[in-house]
């Protein structure tokens, strides 16, 4: 955590105009390349080979988070056929998690993929938020504070997984709606989120993120041929607390395999680095330009004065 604090401080310092501090700390920025996350952060390993698409997780989430009654019952599987704008179902202000069905030509059965907030180690929503509405808790959850949110929706732009949604239907009390890992009701007491508890197939395994990676690797190693040799989320966007195992290449089950392998913040760093430079160099530079540009006039003025004195 120390590392990330120092980097954020560096940026704060730059903005406040405390140039020297900023320049000194910028060295740390180079060194502090990535935030490894809280060591004891929890996570969930989703095994796509186990999911049978029963939507129990969706139902459990709906009840746990007090979300509105859905249009169709949770045991209605026709939702898997729903397509909007050519896209399968996604999270919205009524659902923090949804399961989608993928028909894989090589397989005799479909695969199902649950989506929800992946609770990144260094979340893009958090780093893009200008009112600090997001917090990554030591337990691993990325939580949101609706009391300070301004509703700019930059987090929705920044999230590489298209997870945060906005309560567009409300004029007076809108907010971001997103999975919070059941933080206030469960995770902070060490309990698994409602969806994990509801899953009959244990397609969702809850545990310490580090242990889950070991477990995922064991599954891949001990059942050769069953899984693609990759844990999605171990490295993606700097690592996520929710990770996935799949029997087919991840792009066939709706994953974006082109997301960066480092935190989203890293692509913004180039700009953040110039901020203290502009703040410190520009004033002197342009004051200098001004003196140079107006020198002739000054000389003329002085000459005029001298002439006047002589006369």
């Amino acid at each position: 955590m120390k590392k990330i604090v120092s980097r954020r401080n560096f940026i704060k310092g730059g903005l406040a105009g405390t140039a020297t501090v900023a320049v000194m700390k910028s060295k740390e920025t180079q060194a502090a390349h990535s935030f490894e996350g809280y060591p004891d952060g929890m996570g969930v390993l989703v095994d796509l080979t186990r999911c049978v698409g029963c939507r129990s997780c969706e139902a459990a989430c709906n009840k746990e988070q007090g979300l509105p009654t859905p249009a169709k019952p949770f045991d209605d599987y026709s939702v898997f056929q729903e397509i909007k704008h050519g896209e399968k179902r996604r999270t919205d202000e009524t659902a923090y998690t949804v399961v989608n069905q993928y028909d894989i030509p090589e397989l005799d059965h479909p695969l199902f993929r649950k989506i929800q907030c992946n609770h990144c180690q260094e979340p893009a929503c958090l780093t893009s938020c200008f009112v600090n509405a997001y917090t990554k808790t030591p337990e691993g959850a990325v939580i949101y504070n609706s009391k300070v949110c301004v509703g700019c929706r930059t987090c929705m732009i920044a999230c590489p997984f298209y997870i945060p949604t906005f309560k567009y239907s409300s004029a007076f009390n809108p907010r971001i709606m997103k999975c919070i890992f059941c933080y206030d009701t469960r995770l902070k007491d060490g309990k698994p989120p409602a969806c994990v508890e509801a899953c009959p197939q244990e397609a969702l395994t809850f545990g310490k993120r580090n242990d889950l990676i070991t477990m995922g690797r064991q599954r891949i190693r001990e059942t050769p041929g069953k899984y693609v040799e990759h844990i999605y989320g171990e490295k993606e966007v700097g690592g996520t607390a929710w990770m996935y195992l799949s029997s087919v290449p991840f792009d066939q089950v709706g994953f974006d395999t082109h997301v960066p392998q480092e935190p989203i913040l890293n692509s913004v760093k180039d700009f953040l680095a110039i901020v203290p430079m502009v703040l410190t160099i520009w004033p002197g530079l342009f004051a200098g330009f001004h003196l140079l540009a107006t020198r002739k006039e000054k000389i003329k003025e002085q000459e005029m004065e001298k002439k006047e004195e002589k006369a």
Partner: peptide, 19 residues
């Protein structure tokens, strides 16, 4: 009750506006 089905089937449930 959990699955909003059977005796708890939504009469007219909510779906998010827009897309």
């Amino acid at each position: 009750k959990m699955f909003d089905t059977g005796s708890h089937t939504p009469a007219k449930g909510h779906s998010a506006p827009g897309h």
